[in-house]
Design a protein around this nucleic acid. Sequence first.
RNA 1: GCCCAGGUGGUAUAGCCAGGUUAGCAUCGCCGGCUGUCGCCCGGCGGACCCGGGUUCAAAUCCCGGCCUGGGCGCCA
Length: 439
Amino acid sequence: MLPYVRGYMDSRLGAGKVTSEFEDREVSVSGWVQEIRDLGKIVFIVLRDATGICQIKVLPSKAGRELADTLKSITQESVITVRGRVVKEPRARLGVEIEASDIVLLSRAVSPLPYDVTGKVGAGMRARLENRILDLRKPENRSIFTLASSVSRALREFFYSEGFTEVRTPRIIATSTEGGAELFEVNYFGRPAYLAQSPQLYKEELVTVFEKVFEIGPFFRAEPSHTGRHVSEFTSVDIEAAFMDMEDVMKILERAVSYVYQWVLEKNRGELKTLGVELKPPKTPFKRLTYTEAVETLRALGEKIEWGEDFGTAHLRALGKKYRGFYFITGFPAAVKPFYIQPSWDNPEISESFDLMYQWLELASGGTRISDRGLLEKRLAEKGLKPESFREHLKVYEYGMPFHAGWGLGFERLMMVITRRTNIRDVILFPRDRFRLTP
RNA sequence: GCCCAGGUGGUAUAGCCAGGUUAGCAUCGCCGGCUGUCGCCCGGCGGACCCGGGUUCAAAUCCCGGCCUGGGCGCCA
């Protein structure tokens, strides 16, 4: 048998598919050696591939010299192909095993490995991230990302079913004048350019073409934050829709979250079980709390806060203790929200804005947008931004701009909620933070 | 940027407070044994005190500085 076989996938059986259904049949499985238990006259190998695990049995005395030699050179996490007969075996925990007649070592892993994939000893975040590819082979970590894949698919399905068009906006932008978060500068053919922190302005412009758009993609923030919920590169789920206001898009957000929960409850039972997560679909509509009510609540709880102040972490933690699960905070002071948020018509001190919270974690933020150019310019000036830096954006408002609304949802933060992880790095394959740029 | 905690074999840790041991345990690796393991087991061996300076007869242990890590705050439309 060669290390590479054309057409092999046609005859290969997934390790997780090895069941009594294949009893007495000759099969071929390939994967990574998770564990070798050598009892002397009998050797057990636990083989893992993307479909699951199976147990291989070898009797070196009967197997012949060649197989016995191969067996000796196999190390943990090596890739092997095993041919053998499936046998029912009540003594095996999985109920069946493969009696190997042939084993080919396709790729030998170094020994010892720098990281314990079996999880017999614990591992800190540093060791885990520095050996991330091995860390990801652990069932619970793989499950997180199988779930993440499922969640992003569910979101897409949901948006399509609601008539949204998926769009892609630039990651490289010319201006750093949107205000707010620090941007990463890049060298763009000798000119300074920046990595986008959000698709905000582009998605607003695009509602004049498609009416309802969504985008799921990476964005970048050069903030010095170092917490369990901030990273430099994250995934944003953004929507923007014409002829809608904040109430309309809040309902879409509620439905999107519910849809995702239903989807993973239906399709990812195995992953949820591996993670030990008991997920309950959230009740809709989510609780709605105005900013003013939140401030009053905080004061009643003994927190110090002035009306008009944005919430600090202590405030959010206090609110999160009182309000469990998902809830909206609406009507933030216009002063703490970005320039493009529509001030309320009856009270310009507050704005047509909302945040979606889960306990104390901010998941999404959105609102009705300003659709009038004059007002937008006025708000830009009030925020200390230069209208001339927004010339390209502002001119779009003269080509027919309907009222519109939208939101941005932190994909990884939603994954934290679903997987019950408290560190965002757990739900990013290769996280980038202020201190980590590799692997 | 600030605050707190911490850096001991590849990994995870004990020892540090109260200075002096052959630096302990587990996992791991190698060697040997074991035909029902499934965190296999049993025996033997191997491998570590973040860096620099100071105090002291003596520093993993106390002090100072640096670097790194974890957590948090601030920042974060």
